[in-house]
Computed example of a mutant assay.
Amino acid sequence: MTDNTNFTYEKVKKITDFLRTKTGIEPTIGIICGSGLGGLAELVENKYVIDYADIPGFPISTVIGHAGRLVFGNLGSKKVVCMQGRFHAYEGHSMAKVTLPVRVMKLLGIDTLIVTNACGGLNENYKVGDVMIIKDHICLPALAGIGPLVGLNDDEFGTRFTALSDAYDKDLRKLAKEVAAELGVDKFLHEGVYAMQLGPFYETIAECKLIRNLGADVVGMSTAPEVMVARHCGLRCFGLSLVTNEAIFDYDTERKANHVEVLETAANRGAQMCEFVSKICTRI
């Protein structure tokens, strides 16, 4: 089990106070950019950028495709803060450290969190390049006791027990479908269930079959812990998954999942994803 008592309200507030000395921007929307999707932050106007390494007490992202910086500014009329690169438990971070930025963004003033990720498609109807609105998740590490809310509860963030049956806001999902239709993104859009495993390995064939049988449409290595902490803090959440590779179900195939494929697909679909998320932000 993981004890997440290291990041108290006071420690999170100290990080938040430091960021406030650097920028006068008070964001209402937080955005976490997944692998290869950091281009979304480039759409931010009037931006102020700070590297994670320059933020006292903040983790550092080590994964290719994650720039490792906070970007403050405007998307249309909305003030936002973007994480251009997230943290993962497979990098050696505790779940508390993985989700620390969510609590920082909460204290900065956001009321809505948008999470994006690259994922593997389990649903046979999903193709590489498709986008899925997350309606629910299965967090396999949390079910095994490795979760971001394990340990003493800090009541200044939220109550001891967090309901997750409404983790992904239905009104934001409805809005996303409307925006998708306007932009033509609905041609490759789905709505389904995201499963998270710890990584950093891609799943075995047997694991893919198991996770698919559990009811998941895609699988990845992030997102669910951040959403759990966001809901604990009382934030509205919206999630998008970009299918960057198809899960392997055939024992005779020579095909293998790899991170280069993930980044290439994200680059090819990135512009449309960025426009999609940007448009959603302006309509919230």
Rank of each mutant, 00 (worst) to 15 (best):
A53M: 10
V260E: 15
S77I: 13
L19K: 04
K170N: 15
H232C: 08
A96F: 03
H259P: 12
C208T: 08
S241F: 10
V193E: 09
I60C: 10
T244M: 01
Y90C: 03
E26P: 05
D130F: 03
V179Y: 03
A247G: 04
V193K: 01
V262R: 04
E45W: 13
M196P: 01
N153C: 12
C82R: 01
V218K: 00
R103W: 11
R255T: 13
K97Q: 11
D252A: 13
G85K: 08
E264C: 10
A180R: 07
K174Y: 14
A195F: 06
L40V: 15
A144T: 11
N153F: 14
P56V: 05
V115W: 03
E156Q: 15
L183P: 02
L198Y: 10
G151A: 06
R86H: 06
S222L: 10
V243E: 02
C33Q: 09
C119T: 12
G147E: 00
V229I: 03
P148L: 00
I64H: 13
V260P: 02
K47C: 06
I146E: 03
D154A: 04
T2F: 13
E191G: 11
Y52K: 08
E45S: 12
L235S: 08
A167Y: 01
Y202N: 00
H137I: 05
G30L: 05
D250F: 07
A267F: 05
G39Y: 02
I284M: 12
K209F: 08
R255I: 15
G215N: 10
E264T: 13
N6E: 15
N125M: 15
R269D: 03
M221L: 04
I32N: 08
V102L: 03
N4A: 11
G24Y: 14
C33S: 05
K14I: 14
Y194E: 13
R269P: 00
D136G: 02
Q84H: 09
F276N: 04
A96D: 09
A206E: 13
G145Y: 00
L240K: 01
I248V: 14
L175G: 00
Y168D: 06
E10C: 05
G199V: 07
G151Y: 07
G68Y: 00
M83C: 09
A247Y: 05
F72E: 00
G85A: 06
F161S: 13
I138W: 01
L263T: 01
R69G: 00
G65K: 08
